[in-house]
């Protein structure tokens, strides 16, 4: 039933495929941990990303976007589910195989101020993947690092400097350079611009789009900023409380959002159009507690159009035409 998710461009092979991914965090509670609480951070997520395409993962904070990204790279172990990269079962890999696999799959983290070791020079930071996986001489490594820095739009003169000497945008470029060091095929971009100034955001995003073209990269772009995701993504998956509630091409999501949550998110983006502003759907309340998700449709407590069915039965992700997948009874 999930096979055609995100297959908006036909016969293209999926390079990254996630099936029924579940990640539960056990939280100790009560006296001596007798009442363990289970946080359902990710609850049955399936995705497909085609080669050289970008999947945008959108949602409010705390809805499991980052957890999905980390599970795909096995930075945390998912509770259950499947992750395939170019047909290889990522979750079945041994430690050594996984380390080799990491050459192909890299991640850029949200906060560049903490994702770079403050005690290491740019040369050591960007050179770390090279040092780990290839046996290059020091001068070869230095040449490669300079090349990488220039690729992300920085001067190669910076290699002996330290993270505290750079601005946020520069740091994120360094982090991107590190992620690219081994010529990966797939990058998870976890809110790569959320910690940056708006003007710098645009530069970094433009660079990422350019690099994708030049290096044939596949992106999983995680963000809470719909406009940004619309700009970079081919397909968009909207997440809510650890589930995907709408998944379609970028245009379809923007022009014809079906799920009330997606509609609300879209109407929340600032607009200069007065008519659009007047139709704004305002969400009340917050995201429910992922320990006790509401019965039925997880969105129903905040949904303005919730019916009885929404309170009882959880909607499945179904095709609403042209591969536009949506989980809603309406």
């Amino acid at each position: 039933m999930m096979n055609d998710i995100g297959d908006t461009d036909g016969a293209r092979e999926a390079q990254v495929e996630v099936k029924d991914l579940v990640k539960h965090f056990a939280q100790r509670g009560g006296f001596l941990g007798r009442n363990p609480r289970v946080v359902r951070a990710v609850d049955g997520v399936s995705l497909k990303i085609a080669h050289k395409r970008t999947l945008g993962l959108v949602g409010e904070s705390g809805c499991g976007k980052t957890t999905i990204g980390r599970c795909i790279l096995r930075l945390i172990e998912p509770t259950s589910g499947e992750v395939h990269f170019e047909g290889v079962d990522v979750l079945g890999l041994s430690g050594r195989q996984l380390r080799r696999m990491r050459r192909d799959m890299q991640m850029v983290f949200q906060n560049p101020y903490s994702s770079l070791d403050p005690r290491m020079s740019v040369l050591s930071i960007v050179g770390e993947p090279i040092q780990t996986h290839l046996s290059l001489s020091h001068s070869e490594m230095r040449d490669r690092v300079v090349e990488l820095l220039e690729q992300v739009g920085m001067s190669g003169d910076h290699i002996y400097r330290y993270p505290h000497e750079f601005s946020g945008g520069q740091l994120q470029r360094i982090a991107v350079a590190r992620a690219l060091a081994l010529n990966p095929k797939f990058l998870v971009l976890d809110e790569p611009t959320a910690a940056l100034d708006v003007s710098v955001q645009a530069q970094v995003i433009a660079k990422l789009v350019e690099l994708q073209q030049d290096l044939n990269l596949t992106y999983l772009f995680i963000s809470h900023n719909l406009t940004l995701v619309h700009y970079v993504s081919d397909t968009i998956a909207v997440t809510y409380l650890g589930r995907i509630i709408e998944h379609a091409s970028s245009e379809a999501i923007f022009d014809n959002p079906i799920h009330p949550y997606t509609q609300a998110l879209l109407s929340a983006t600032p607009s200069l159009d007065r008519e659009l502003r007047q139709q704004r759907v305002i969400l009340t309340g917050g995201v429910p507690d992922p320990v006790n998700p509401p019965p039925g449709c997880v969105f129903h407590p905040r949904c303005s159009r919730a019916k009885d069915a929404c309170r009882q039965e959880e909607p499945r992700l179904v095709n609403a035409g042209d591969g536009h997948m949506v989980a809603c009874h309406l």
Partner: peptide, 23 residues
């Protein structure tokens, strides 16, 4: 990228310079 096998790659001396700078 050329991958040459010539034993252990030269250690970057940068960790120490970080410490010196800090000192």
């Amino acid at each position: 990228m050329t991958v040459r096998l010539e034993g252990i790659p030269e250690k970057p001396r940068t960790a120490w310079s970080a410490r010196f700078q800090e000192s």
